[in-house]
Structure formats: structure tokens, C-alpha cells
């Protein structure tokens, strides 16, 4: 029974560490598939985290909190979209500006919320099933955002592969000139994809402040937004591999918490480096296969489009 309890608790903590990565990376994947590289994930997540926290605390409704976080993330993405899509600004620079702005804005909004406690996001319990040993709490006793992360991934996967709109989105990302010539609204598609990415990053941020650690702290995502960006490369822009990547990194994050529990004498700072070092290792492993990266990268990723030439 003790092993059961340990397995269950490790599995639950891996899921909660992976969920925000999966949510943010799913959003960014759609954005990048349309040819837009938004490096502002970290900033959008932080703003989502504080807005979700503040609204949940103020209204007492986590549903409203999550919706507000999604809107806040989308609003941040809108700033990015106006600058890069309408005003043709450099996407790399604008994404960095969005992150710097988001760190500042979230800290300003959050200055009154530091140290305030919050009820964690309720776990949904499927009657009868959630009390089963091990599988019960893992499969049938999660909070709504965990289920949402899977639902969103499946929906995005279906959308990109099977739907007509998904085909247009991929066309816009692979050849904006051809897509424009056929008559598709390149800029409109990219706006929508960017806003969707922002909303997902906002929800990912809300997961941090409502479920992962139910509180607000400055910079609480500590680089998870950048790891989500790396995950999209790791997945070579394919949703199924995103799931693998997010749970791999969730696992590494949790491993880091348990290493010292196993009695391995490593200073905690070195253990904390693990997710960042693992990101570098994984990026190198994927990127060194140049052919595969070239075949899978949206061909117009990061390039501006101006219909007037």
C-alpha cells in the first residue's frame, strides 16, 4: 500500500508540473504553425498567472479566474500581433519586449497580492472511479485544467491534421505568398493563431498561481515559458511529441525535488539546474538532425508578410 501511495504521489506531482508546459506549448505550436514566432511566452504566462489569481481571489470563482487569465494572455498577444503583423516589427525583438513588459506588469499588478493564500483549484472527482487505488486519483481525480490540457492537445492535433481551417493555417505558415495568392487572409489567420497562443499561455500561467503553487510570487514561472518554447522545437512542431516532451520535463522537474530525498549529496542549486540543462541537451539532440528540423519547421517562421510588397 505504501508503494501505491508513493507511485500515486509522484505521478500526481509529475502531472501538475507538466500541465502548464503542455498548455503553453500547445498554444505556441499553433502560433508557430502559422509562421509567427512569439518569444513572449514567459511574459504572457506571468500576466495570466497574476490576473487569474487576482480575479479568482476577488470573485471567488476559479472559472472566472481562468477565463480572465486567458483573456489577459490574449491581450498581451494582441500587442505582439499589432506590432509584428500590422506594423511589421521584428518578431524576435518584439517577443523579448513582451517578456520584459510582462515581467514588469505582472509584478506591478501582483505587488498587493504577495503572500495572500488561495484555495487550490478543486480536483474533480468522478464518482466511484476516483477512489480506485493509483489509477483513481491519477486518471479520474485531476483538476479541470489537466483535462483541458489534454483536450486542447487532441483538438489542436485534429484541427491541424484534419480540418480545412487547419490546412489554411499550415499553408500560411509554410508559404505566405502562395496562401495570399490563393486568396487566404494571411494576416487574419496569423492574428487568430497568435491570440490563441496567448490565451493558452495565459491559462498555463493561471495553472501556476491557482493549482501548482496556489499563491502569487514575482517571476513565479521561473523560465517555464522558455522551456515551453524549446518544447515546440523538441516536438518538431508535431502535437503528439509535445505530450512526450511536456511530461519528460515535468518528470525532470519532479526528479529534481526527489533527488535529495534519495540521499544523494548534491547541492540543491545544482539539482535546480537540471530542467535548464536538460532543455539544452534536448535542443541539441533535436537540432543536430538538420534535415528533420528543416523539413518540419514552418518555412515562413518569423518572417514578416506585407501584402503591398
Amino acid at each position: 500500500m505504501n508503494e501505491f501511495a508513493l507511485i500515486t504521489s509522484v505521478a500526481l506531482s509529475v502531472i501538475s508540473a507538466s500541465t502548464p508546459l503542455l498548455l503553453a506549448a500547445t498554444g505556441e505550436l499553433v502560433t508557430e504553425k502559422s509562421g509567427v514566432l512569439n518569444l513572449g511566452v514567459e511574459g504572457m504566462m506571468l500576466v495570466g498567472a497574476i490576473v487569474g489569481f487576482a480575479v479568482t481571489l476577488g470573485t471567488g470563482s476559479a472559472v472566472l479566474g481562468v477565463c480572465a487569465a486567458a483573456l489577459a494572455g490574449a491581450a498581451m498577444a494582441l500587442v505582439f500581433a499589432v506590432l509584428t503583423l500590422t506594423l511589421l516589427a521584428n518578431q524576435v525583438a518584439t517577443g523579448l519586449a513582451l517578456t520584459i513588459f510582462g515581467i514588469g506588469l505582472s509584478a506591478l499588478i501582483g505587488s498587493g497580492y504577495v503572500g495572500q493564500p488561495l484555495q487550490p483549484l478543486p480536483k474533480l472527482a468522478v464518482p466511484g472511479l476516483s477512489t480506485l487505488p493509483v489509477v483513481g486519483p491519477i486518471l479520474f481525480g485531476q483538476d479541470a485544467l489537466v483535462y483541458l490540457s489534454f483536450a486542447a492537445l487532441i483538438a489542436v492535433s485534429w484541427f491541424l491534421r484534419r480540418s480545412h481551417a487547419g490546412l489554411i493555417l499550415r499553408a500560411v505558415g509554410d508559404s505566405h505568398d502562395a496562401a495570399h495568392a490563393i486568396g487566404y487572409g494571411v494576416i487574419k489567420v496569423r492574428y487568430l493563431a497568435t491570440l490563441f497562443g496567448g490565451a493558452m499561455c495565459g491559462i498555463a500561467g493561471a495553472y501556476f498561481s491557482l493549482a501548482y503553487t496556489p499563491m502569487w510570487a514575482e517571476n513565479m514561472t521561473s523560465g517555464r515559458g522558455w522551456i515551453a518554447l524549446a518544447l515546440v522545437v523538441f516536438a518538431t512542431w508535431r502535437p503528439a511529441r509535445l505530450l512526450l516532451g511536456a511530461y519528460l520535463f515535468g518528470g525532470i522537474t519532479i526528479l529534481q525535488l526527489h533527488i535529495q530525498g534519495f540521499g544523494i549529496p548534491v547541492p540543491s542549486q545544482f539539482v535546480s539546474m537540471l530542467p535548464y540543462l536538460a532543455t539544452i541537451v534536448v535542443l541539441v539532440a533535436i537540432s543536430s538532425d538538420r534535415t528533420r528540423v528543416r523539413l518540419n519547421t514552418p518555412a515562413c517562421l518569423g518572417r514578416a508578410f506585407n501584402a503591398a510588397g
Binding site: V79, L87, A93, A97, L98, I100, F101, G104, L105, S106
Partner: peptide, 16 residues
């Protein structure tokens, strides 16, 4: 943190 906001806004305006 207000410094970060100004810096972000400045870069936004510059890029625009």
C-alpha cells in the same frame, strides 16, 4: 517593477 514596464513600453514604441 515599474522599471520593467517602462522598458517594455519603450521597446514597443521603438519597434512600432
Amino acid at each position: 517593477a515599474i522599471t520593467g514596464i517602462y522598458q517594455g513600453v519603450l521597446l514597443f514604441f521603438l519597434l512600432a
